[in-house]
């Protein structure tokens, strides 16, 4: 075997390995989709979206309470995390070159890596223990803590991509540093930041652990922020470990809706990014 054939063979082998890795990476995703779809689709019905859970022993009912609950929890989480995360990201990008900036950056990365159950315990100590009952607010808080580092780091990274000449342009017109950041830099980076926010939303929408002892779950329809509230993830978890076949079916349906919600956020992220980018260009 001469050198050229050997190199060609090696090249072909490496390309094959890359392809194989892609297949291995994608197969689980498709299996999950297919399995959840197969198991859950048959249990989906109009009732599932409009009815609340029935008492134990009765069949039928739905997860309307959990769907609304998940949306409320995501809303609270974004309400906390979007402003905090974005402003922190602006800080890191505009002023974060000093040692304190590195500390904040490191802390955000560590927070991002903290197991979600630990975040749940923290929120429990912060917002459940003092008032002695579970609440939607506590659940939203836990999810918000998880979103903050993601949004902070995305905002920072995207602001760093905005050409510094824009900042100079604003400063040269008499803008203060903060004014330049919020009126020129952030709008310029907004498409990307929006994507980051939606990716963070998709991530936390599927979280169960932080909600177990914060939002807790609720078998009844509730929109009160100071009361326990249902969520798709916790409801799926509860139903899945129950001994009833009907609940198992509903758990699959719930899982399917959850996957759909996450998928929707991801698609939305793409669409919004495209829209905003086009708006900026023309």
């Amino acid at each position: 075997m001469n050198g050229t054939t050997r190199r060609k063979l090696l090249s072909g082998f490496v390309v094959f390995l890359c392809g194989a890795a892609v297949v291995v990476a994608l197969v689980p995703l498709f299996l999950i989709f297919a399995y959840v779809l197969q198991k859950g689709f048959s249990s989906l019905s109009w009732d599932f979206f409009t009815r609340n859970p029935r008492p134990v022993g009765e069949t039928g009912g739905g997860m309307a309470n959990a769907i609304v609950g998940t949306l409320i929890l995501i809303g609270i989480a974004s309400g906390i995390a979007v402003p905090v995360g974005m402003v922190a990201g602006v800080y890191l990008s505009e002023y974060g070159k000093k040692p304190f900036g590195s500390l904040v950056r490191f802390t955000a990365d560590v927070l991002n890596g903290v197991p979600s159950i630990v975040i749940g315990i923290f929120a429990y100590g912060l917002a459940v223990l003092p008032v002695k009952h579970f609440s939607a607010l506590a659940g939203g808080l836990a999810l918000g803590f998880m979103m903050i580092p993601i949004i902070t780091r995305t905002t920072e990274e995207l602001l760093n991509l905005v050409p510094g000449t824009l900042r100079e342009g604003a400063l040269a017109l008499g803008a203060t540093r903060a004014r330049a950041a919020f009126s020129v830099m952030v709008p310029a980076a907004l498409p990307g930041i929006m994507t980051g926010i939606l990716v963070a939303l998709a991530r936390i929408a599927g979280e169960t652990a932080p909600l177990l002892f914060t939002a807790f779950g609720n078998r009844f329809f509730s929109t009160r922020l100071d009361q326990p509230i249902a969520s798709l993830t916790v409801q799926v978890f509860t139903y899945a470990i129950s001994p009833y076949d009907d609940w198992h079916r509903q758990a699959w349906a719930g899982a399917l809706v959850l996957v759909a919600v996450v998928f929707l956020f991801s698609v939305l992220a793409r669409v919004v990014t495209r829209r905003l980018e086009r708006m900026h260009r023309t």
Binding site: T165, L166, E168, G169, H280
Partner: peptide
């Protein structure tokens, strides 16, 4: 006032 080497209109 200042005008820069590379034109830098804001994305507005």
């Amino acid at each position: 006032g200042m005008v820069f080497q590379k034109s830098n209109p804001f994305p507005k």
